[in-house]
Design a binder for these strands. Sequence first.
DNA 1: GCAGGGTCTGACCGATCGTGCAGTACGCTC
DNA 2: GAGCGTACTGCACGATCGGTCAGACCCTGC
Lengths: 186, 186
Amino acid sequence: MPSGAAPLIAAALRQFAAVGFEGASLQRIADDAGLSKSSVLYHFASKEALLDAAVRPAIEPLCALIDSADLENPAGMEAFLAQFVDFLFDHRLEVVVVVSHGSALRGIPVIDEVDGLVRRVEELLRPEQGSERDAIRFGVALAGTAFMLVAADRWGTERLPDDVLRPMLRSVLAELVLPGATAQPA
Amino acid sequence: MPSGAAPLIAAALRQFAAVGFEGASLQRIADDAGLSKSSVLYHFASKEALLDAAVRPAIEPLCALIDSADLENPAGMEAFLAQFVDFLFDHRLEVVVVVSHGSALRGIPVIDEVDGLVRRVEELLRPEQGSERDAIRFGVALAGTAFMLVAADRWGTERLPDDVLRPMLRSVLAELVLPGATAQPA
DNA sequence: GCAGGGTCTGACCGATCGTGCAGTACGCTC
DNA sequence: GAGCGTACTGCACGATCGGTCAGACCCTGC
């Protein structure tokens, strides 16, 4: 992992999140990182490889989150929800890239892998036949939580600071998903 | 409203929803509509004007929905939620464009107008001070519902048909938002 | 001093982008 | 048939896109 690659990945992540993969140019990414366009293509074989390097670090944590999920009992469920919120905050830009612009990127391996993980979450939420409606309620809550983070970046003029928003989202998500839980103000 | 403009708007909406504004080229939009690239710029002054013409029709219904919203009593709330879901289905592609790719389009008038409407919804949900948490729960439910539609287009291999999904989303949204309501299976 | 690898850059390429413009085919009215 | 407006197209433009390549500038080991 060369030294100059890290700021390029950070700049690429910012640009991809802001204007999408197609909208971001290697030139602007290079300018953002304070390097030349040629340097980008020295560190990464192509623009697509740069996207891969930027998004891939988020895959393993998400995979681990899914693998360790135990949604049978309320405690396991609550742990899953908390870890899900933490994941969203820890990989905020990656989430924005995939959620906001991912539909245009089908066919790119790293995006397809993320899509596969999303499908695994979907299966996770539908353990038995016939609970279609519960799965949708679950999906709305999860997707809504993810989107609130995107929205916070997009419409957030004077939004809540993260250390307030995070426990609040955790609490709201638990309330929406868990069966008998009632709200306890954050 | 010239005749040849309508298929161009339809094609543009499909392209913008699929690959984003930056990712869609006038050439592909023209091909999709069965016309030449020059024809696109005959009917619309620029690519941005085409986006405006494609998205603007969704603004007035959304505005009317917000104006007529009465969230004080449960009946008014339920009516608002039902109309919100209907709006999402009636202007599906426009919603996908704005939700998925809108963050890259700030500065374009029609997008800024939509952002203003979103902010009005946000204010609608926070009638009094201190109910920050309720507003977030509300926002998660609304955003999640909108995103489920986007997700249905994106990950939907063998998804539910619309006439099943629509009442189900309506029911789920009511359950998530309304205080004392319990689920009645669709 | 010098060779070599890692890092970075400017010049350049072909393709495609959005856009401007001259021109063409059709239909309508006098 | 002359004149005109509408719908549409082909062609060319400057800019920018992702990508290639030959070097220049380090730093380290000999």
